[in-house]
Nucleic acid binder design. Structure first.
Length: 421
RNA sequence: GUGGAUGUAGCUCAGGUGGCUAGAGCAUCAGAUUGUGGCUCUGAGGGUCGUGGGUUCAAGUCCCAUCAUCCACCCCA
């Protein structure tokens, strides 16, 4: 710890070299999978005008009400560290006129998000998400793809037993009637609801559904579901989505209480849950947002997307799979004895690196044994020893660290010799 | 924002009812092996006992406060 006691801020953490290999593995998997499916990366700023999230995510959401990192910059602009990836992606889609280029636009992103919450297992103030967005595709094929592709990534990571929760929350033509029906159903028991649900009753009645408090569940154990009230279009969309998921063999649970905390969703909402990572068991979620592009100043454009929490995925992968080694190791470590040999080692190492090999050498003039130990810890496949003898003849002693076999070869042959094995 | 638990070495943790220079394992470094890693043995370095105050002849230990971490609630990734 630092003398002045400075540590990483609350809710943040360092990914240290021992863990970075695993993260690189996950990141590579995400990229590879998305690109294989025809998605292209978009990188948006880490902060945006606060207004984007207030309008896009919705002013009654927990994110906007109490979780945003918002501040005034030196120019007096109101700025917010991005709490999620969809609103910025939509903003960029509109700003750069992607709507008038080839549709659908299939985008993916990966990077840090920020929410001011009390940290706990699987929850941080700076966390990482990967996600995908399809804009300009109204049919259920887009929803089905957006649900299926992350499952592919989970599977490749070794995450088992992912439960897909699925729901539809309707569209502007059928949602209002359902909202009203919910309010009517809850009206008689309003006095028995928890304080936050009392305010939800007026502001965002759908959120009454996903309150987990005992009192609210007891007040109305079986609230009316939307399924009888979906308009023909939403109903057909939902059926179509289910058919496609069945075709892919993707299992799911219909959960009429799955509302999700973002206001922009229409029709499809879904969430992935796993066990064994603490009480925050959602590793990803998403849904359709057919009005969002227009809301952000673009032409009417349907959209659907998903976002997954990378640290929760990593936790789930570690809970399932045994510890795996993701560190690369290196091809050759050059051991040098004496100053002249060290200079030669430096020269040889850089030359071999130019030939594409992973090579390191001793920089601090330690003894032979210490250098050997270090080479072993760095998991070098070969060690090349340079001492006075080798220096005199222009050779090196090459040791295969897995077998212990040793040979002397010309220094000029080193790279070729290593590459052969 | 609310509740609970926990803060002793880089890491994981011991230290009944207060009492000598605060310990172990792992890790690091070195030696055993004067030019050879892993295994073994030996040794060394490394500690404001989270911080501040209080009680006491005496506090890592008891009391209060504070900060931090973890877990849970809310909600979400």
């Amino acid at each position: 710890m630092f003398a002045v006691g400075i540590v990483a801020p609350r809710g943040t953490f360092d990914i240290m070299p021992d863990d970075a290999g695993l993260w690189q593995f996950v990141e590579g998997l995400v990229r590879e999978t998305f690109e294989k499916c025809g998605y292209r990366e978009i990188r948006t700023p880490m902060f945006e005008h606060t207004e984007l999230f207030e309008r896009g995510v919705g002013s009654t959401t927990d994110i906007v009400e109490k979780e945003m990192y918002t501040f005034k910059d030196r120019g007096g602009r109101l700025i917010t560290l991005r709490p999620e990836g969809t609103a910025p992606a939509v903003r960029a889609f509109v700003e750069h006129g992607l709507a008038s280029r080839a549709l659908p636009a299939k985008l993916y992103y990966m990077g840090p998000m920020f929410r001011y919450e009390r940290p706990q297992a699987g929850r941080y103030r700076q966390f990482h998400q990967f996600g995908m967005e399809v804009m300009g595709a109204a049919g259920p094929e887009a929803d089905a793809e957006v649900i299926a592709v992350p499952l592919e990534i989970f599977r490749a990571m070794g995450i088992q037993d992912v439960v897909v929760n699925l729901n539809s929350i309707g569209c502007p033509s059928c949602k209002p009637a359902y909202r009203q029906r919910l309010q009517e159903a809850y009206a008689p028991v309003l006095g028995r609801l928890c304080p936050s649900c009392k305010s939800r009753y007026d502001r965002n009645p759908l959120r009454l559904l996903d309150c987990k408090s005992e009192e609210c569940r007891a007040a109305l154990p079986e609230p009316p579901t939307i399924f009888g009230q979906l308009c023909p279009e939403c109903s057909a969309h939902f059926d179509g989505l289910r058919r496609l998921l069945d075709k892919l063999g993707v299992g799911y649970v219909i959960n009429p209480r799955l509302v999700r905390g973002l206001d922009y969703y229409t029709k499809t909402t879904f969430e992935y849950n796993v066990g064994g990572i603490g009480s925050q068991d959602a590793i990803g979620g998403g849904g359709r947002y057919d009005g969002l592009v227009e809301e952000c100043g673009g032409p009417p454009t349907p959209g659907v997307g998903v976002a997954c929490g990378m640290e929760r995925c990593v936790l789930a992968a570690q809970a399932n799979a045994a510890d795996q080694e993701y560190q690369a190791g290196m091809d050759v470590f050059i051991v040098s004895l004496g100053e002249a040999a060290r200079e030669r080692a430096f020269e040889l190492a850089h030359g071999m690196r130019r030939e594409g090999l992973a090579v390191d050498f001793d920089m601090i003039g330690r003894g032979l044994k210490a250098q050997m130990r270090y080479a072993d810890k760095m998991r070098a496949r070969f060690v090349a020893i340079l001492g006075d003898d080798e220096l005199a003849t222009g050779e090196a002693t090459v040791k295969d660290m897995s077998t212990g076999e040793q040979t002397r070869i010309a220094q000029a042959e080193l790279a070729a010799c290593v590459r052969r094995q």
